[in-house]
């Protein structure tokens, strides 16, 4: 939801990043205010996942320019785990398997670490079990997933659902969902989308990376952006996604000249 005079949660300016010597992000400008839902679309390899991982602090990516403020503070001054504790959450496009580490145990440690940081009481294993089972009901997940190793042998869709379960438990301020819809069947998409809608409110914000309009029917974005070759080249309202769905990316007239320096801001108020 767009809230009048809402505070800025995330402010990205001229962000450039490289991996293995290749520049992938070439000047990203992006602003998110409390309460908003943004969708980022764009061709394969355009840098959407890179952008997500850079925000979360993945060490493989080198920041070569620009700045990111999270709630007014320099995001890059924080270690990845500190960003997470400050409320940055990334639902991975490809959640990794961690054999030998119980999913329930993992979720509890993540939750309790955050609770401690927020000055709240930790939950003991029994209390946590009750708590997590409630959240799993919301996502129609079988509690057996608590006893399995983190993501190990989970189907593609189960992994995605497990990511949103973590979002539900950690209640982040900024949730970045990287292609959470891909791999979900039709029912699962609806359930997961309902789960996400249930979690969004005026005290947080969501960035969804997706290729399909389908997801946006369930989680209606306030803004839609197109990323191409490491930049946001066009921004608009939810109707932009529909247009992309029917016409593809080729017709786009960039809001900015891809060959010049990016403009100071590319935020468009719908």
């Amino acid at each position: 939801m767009i809230i009048q005079d809402s505070k800025v949660l995330l402010e990205v300016r001229g962000l450039r990043a490289s991996v293995n010597g290749t520049e992938v992000l070439k000047g990203v400008d992006f602003t998110v205010r409390y309460g908003e839902v943004h969708a980022i679309m764009g061709p394969n390899g355009s840098g959407k996942s890179t952008f997500s991982k850079v925000l979360a602090g993945h060490k493989a990516y080198e920041i070569t320019g620009g700045s990111v403020l999270f709630d007014g503070k320099d995001l890059f001054a924080l270690e990845p785990e500190e960003r997470a504790r400050a409320g940055v959450f990334l639902a991975f496009q490809y959640p990794i398997e961690i054999p030998g580490v119980g999913n329930g145990q993992f979720l509890r440690l993540a939750y309790n670490t955050l609770q401690t940081r927020r000055g709240h009481e930790e939950l003991d294993p029994l209390e946590f079990d009750d708590f997590v089972r409630e959240k799993m009901k919301l996502l129609e997940m079988n509690p057996d997933f608590l006893d399995r190793s983190v993501n190990e042998g989970f189907s593609g869709g189960e992994k995605k659902r497990n990511e949103i379960l973590q979002m539900a438990i950690l209640e982040p301020r900024l949730a970045i969902l990287d292609e959470t819809d891909s791999g979900l069947d039709i029912d699962a998409l609806r359930i997961v989308a309902q789960g996400v809608n249930h979690l969004t409110n005026k005290n947080n914000a969501t960035i969804m990376v997706t290729h399909y309009q389908r997801l946006l029917n369930y989680i209606v974005p306030d803004f839609v952006h197109v990323m191409e070759a490491g930049r946001i080249i066009k921004s608009g309202g939810k109707e932009l996604a529909q247009e992309l769905e029917s016409r593809g990316y080729d017709w786009i007239q960039p809001d900015l000249d891809v060959n010049s320096q990016p403009k100071a801001t590319a935020r468009i108020v719908a």
Partner: peptide, 13 residues
């Protein structure tokens, strides 16, 4: 792997 460690870190661990 680095990606496993990143997964933990991303969850605040």
């Amino acid at each position: 792997g680095e990606d496993q460690m990143f997964y933990f870190a991303q969850r605040g661990i």
